[in-house]
């Protein structure tokens, strides 16, 4: 129900923002990343939608199909929830930041950046959150290869004879 309502609102307010397919998925809304910051502000502020709680941001590496950023929203006022999916290019992953719309997005976006290297445009403090600042590579990408050493410490397994 809320799913159709959000689709309707977005089609009316931001025409061309939804990735239209013949069979629309029933449990999430795929949208283009253009205008994402405005759409996000609309989702939060519209009195009928009022998604005042950003619950999670997830990155997904789909291999050849590029990468996804997925947002889970919940409304404390109306007690409904929705999932938004936005695909990004794996070569140059960039997406508008929503850190200033939901403050909790700050750390969520830093975590996705830490694991997938997706740049959140407009984030005021985009640096690694879990890994050391000078770590090389993005660990949850499909093509990730662990670095050999970290500050002189050998990273891959060194006790091979234990197998």
């Amino acid at each position: 129900m809320i799913h159709e309502q959000v689709l309707k609102c977005l089609r009316k307010k931001f025409p061309g923002s939804i990735v239209e397919t013949e069979e629309m998925p029933a449990d999430f809304i795929p949208i283009y990343q253009k205008n994402w910051a405005e759409i996000a502000a609309f989702l939060r502020d519209d009195p009928d939608l009022r998604f005042d709680s950003l619950q999670c941001i997830t990155g997904v590496d789909l291999g050849e199909e590029g990468m996804d950023v997925r947002y889970n929203f919940h409304s404390m006022t109306h007690l409904h929830k929705i999932e938004i999916r936005i695909s990004v290019d794996s070569e140059n992953p960039k997406i508008p930041s929503i850190e200033q719309i939901w403050r909790v997005g700050d750390w969520f976006e830093r975590e996705v950046y830490d694991m997938y290297g997706i740049i959140f445009d407009g984030h005021r403090d985009l640096r690694r959150i879990l890994l050391p600042d000078d770590w090389e590579g993005w660990p949850l990408r499909k093509d990730y290869e662990t670095q050999e050493t970290f500050h002189g410490i050998v990273v891959p397994k060194v006790k091979e004879e234990w197998e």
Binding site: P139, Y144, I153, V154, V155, K157, K159, W162
Partner: peptide, 20 residues
């Protein structure tokens, strides 16, 4: 002691504190 359950695939885990 050895990295425990992360000893083979944990990219971020030190394989035994005796290394440092």
């Amino acid at each position: 002691t050895s990295g425990g359950p992360y000893w083979q695939y944990g990219y971020h885990v030190l394989k035994g504190v005796d290394i440092v």
